[in-house]
Simulated assay, not measured.
Amino acid sequence: MRIDFSNWKPLTIREVNNIFSRISIYWGVAGGCALDMHLGRKTREHSDTDIVIFREDQQMVYQLLKNEWTLYKAKDGKLSLWLEGEYLDAVSDIWISRDNQSPWAFQIMLMDCEQGNWIYRREKTIKVSKEELFSTEENNVPYLKPAIQLLYKGGSSQIREKDFSDFQSVLPSLSLKEKEWLKEALKRQFPLGHSWMKSLED
C-alpha cells in the first residue's frame, strides 16, 4: 500500500499517446488536460495526467502496462496493488508508476458501458454513444469532449476552485448544443439546482 498521493511526475500527453495508441480500444485524455486540448492552449498548471477507458477493456490495458509499470487500485482512500487477473468491478480509479517507489506517472479512470453507450455512474440515466464521447486534437490524440468532462467536474460532491475555473475558461467555447446538454445533465443529477446553471442559461 502507498500513501504518497502527492508524489507526481506526470507523463506528457505525447508520452501517454505513445503508450495507448498501441492497442485498439476507446480511450482518451481526461481532466483539465482534456479541456486545454479542446481550447488549444494551456489555461493552468496540471499536477497529474488523467486517462479514461471503459471497464470492459481493463484486462487489455493491464496486459499492455504490466511489464513496464506498477498498477495500483484506489478504493476507500487507499492505494493497493492491482493484481494480474483481478477484475475491478467496484473500483474506478487506477494509479500508475514505474515501480513501488517512483512518482505517479498517470491515472486511469474506468468508465461503465452498456449496449454501446457510456453510462454516467453518478446518474445512470445519462448516456452517450461511445462514438460521441471523444474528440481529437491536431496530433490525433483523443480527449474527453468538454461538456462531458465538465459534467464530471460539476457533478462531483465537492466542486474545487480549479473545477470552477475550468468551467469559466471553457464555457465560451461550448456550442449551444453542448451547453444545453450540460445544463440538462446537471438538472437530472441535481433537480434542486446547481451553482453553474445561471451561467449556462445566460
Score class of each variant (00 low, 15 high):
Q58E: 15
M37V: 09
L79I: 04
Q63I: 07
T43H: 07
Q107M: 06
R55F: 01
W118R: 02
E84Y: 12
M111Y: 14
E84A: 07
T49G: 13
I53E: 02
L110Y: 05
E68I: 05
M111P: 00
V61R: 00
C33F: 06
M60T: 15
L64V: 01
F106I: 04
V91L: 10
L110D: 00
V52T: 14
G116K: 02
W118D: 00
M37H: 05
V52E: 12
A105S: 13
K75E: 14
M37A: 08
S102L: 06
M109H: 13
V91Y: 10
H46K: 08
Q101I: 13
V52H: 09
D112G: 11
S97C: 15
K73S: 12
D36S: 04
I108Y: 06
V61A: 06
Y87C: 11
N67L: 10
G40Y: 07
D36H: 06
W95M: 07
W82Q: 06
L110S: 04
D99L: 12
L79C: 04
W118M: 04
L71V: 05
I51D: 04
G116E: 04
D89V: 02
D50T: 07
W95L: 09
W95E: 00
L83V: 14
Q107G: 02
W95R: 05
D89Q: 09
I96C: 03
R41D: 03
I96N: 00
L88N: 12
V61S: 02
Q63T: 13
K78V: 13
W82K: 04
L81D: 10
Y87V: 15
K73R: 14
S47V: 10
A105R: 14
L39Q: 01
G40E: 05
T49C: 14
Y62C: 02
N117T: 03
H38A: 11
K66P: 00
Y87F: 15
L83F: 08
K66E: 10
G77V: 03
L83I: 15
E56V: 13
K42G: 13
K75M: 12
D76A: 13
C33R: 12
E84I: 12
D93M: 06
L81I: 11
I53Q: 04
M60L: 15
S102V: 03
S47P: 04
G77R: 00
W69V: 07
R55K: 15
T49R: 15
D89F: 10
D112W: 00
M60F: 10
N67S: 12
D112A: 05
T70E: 13
L39K: 03
Y62P: 04
K66G: 01
G77P: 01
G77M: 01
L83E: 11
N117L: 14
L65E: 03
K78S: 15
E45M: 12
H38G: 08
G40R: 06
L110G: 00
K66N: 06
V61Y: 02
L71D: 09
N100R: 11
K66H: 10
Q59W: 06
